[in-house]
Each structure stands twice: as C-alpha cells, then as structure tokens.
C-alpha cells in the first residue's frame, strides 16, 4: 500500500482513485446497504475531489477528506430523503457478548456485511471505518466531527450490537438446522 502521507501535494488523480476507491466503496456500501448507491457515493466523492481537491493543502489529510466527503454526501442524500437519524438510542451498558472468532470465520462476506448493516447507523458509521482499517480512531473522530470519547463509546456499543446480531443469526441458523433434522 502506498503511503499517501509521504506523497507530494501534487496528488495524481489516478493514484488516488487506485488507492482509495475500493475502501470508499466498502464504506459507502456499509452506509447505504446498496451497491448502486455505494458506487454513486464513491464517484461523487471523487467528483468533489476533482473539483475542490486542489484547495486541500495538507496531503496527509487526503484520506480523511475522502471518507468525510463520502459520509457527508451520504448524510446530504439522507436529509433530502428525510431519513436522517439524529438521535442516539438509549443503550444499557451490558456485559459484552462473547463471540468466538470461528463463528465469524464461517460467515460469508455478505452475511458479515449484512450483520454490520443491521447495527444502528449511529454506531455503524464509526464501526465500518474502524474495520476498514484506513483511519486511526482519532482520524475517525475528525472525519465524523465527533469527540474521541464519543467515537470510543460508539465503537464499543457498535461492537456489542454487532456481536449480538451475529450470535442471533448463528442461533437462528442452528435452530433451522435442528428443525430440519
């Protein structure tokens, strides 16, 4: 992976696309739950970069800028559709469910993403960025314009939800298997 931080300010558009279009698509897919919408969001992000990217003076911020832009575009579209979630659901601080990693291993990618997409959006956004491994949690906080403490809390709650959803799915699967026997 090329270290974009070491690149000069004169960023090549093609290099930038090659470096980030896949993780941006994945992020968009997790947000929108639709391949078409994820493609549109990714293209729109690069379109905005093509128009305004030269105003970004700090090359080390490019990655955060792209993810932030995609997220803002997603929110803009949601606002237009009137489906913005503005509240944070009350979550009781429960003991974290323990999920064996082999349970995740047997899930296919689509199932995993589906589980992730069932997580409340407010937690899903930082959680997806976290799992994409593109941004440090401090960068996630900056990208989402949230305090670091809030990001940590949301990651924790999001993980907890994700684990519960995976366990629930696994339980349902096992029940179906048992009933078929």
């Amino acid at each position: 992976m090329t270290d974009i931080n070491n690149k000069s300010h004169n960023l090549d558009f093609k290099d930038l696309v090659d470096e980030y279009y896949t993780p941006l698509f994945r992020f968009g897919y997790s947000l929108s739950k639709s391949e078409d919408a994820a493609g549109d969001l990714t293209q729109q992000t690069f379109y905005i970069w093509a128009k305004k990217g030269d105003t970004l003076r700090d090359a080390s911020k490019v990655k955060s800028w792209l993810f932030t832009t995609l997220y803002r575009e997603f929110l803009r579209i949601k606002r237009k559709e009137g489906t913005t979630t503005t509240f944070e659901p009350e979550i009781m601080e429960l003991e974290l469910p323990v999920v064996e990693s082999n349970i995740v291993t047997v899930l296919d990618a689509n199932d995993t993403v589906k589980c992730l997409q069932e997580v409340d959006e407010i937690y899903r956004v930082p959680l997806t960025l976290y799992y994409l491994n593109e941004l440090a949690y401090k960068e996630i906080a900056a990208a989402l314009d949230l305090p670091i403490g809030t990001v940590m809390s949301r990651l924790s709650r999001g993980k907890s939800q994700l684990k519960s959803i995976i366990l629930e799915k696994e339980r349902n699967k096992n029940e179906i298997k048992t009933s078929n026997l």
Binding site: D18, V99, T105, T112, Y130
Partner: peptide, 19 residues
Amino acid sequence: FDSAISQKLKSIQPPADLR
C-alpha cells in the same frame, strides 16, 4: 474478532467498471 470482521469487509469488491 476484529481481524475476522475486517477480512470479511475487505472481501467486498466494487463493481468492475467503477474505477
């Protein structure tokens, strides 16, 4: 757990013509 989820997420590929 994180590593397993990351690997699954990263196996999602964008459409071939997106680039």
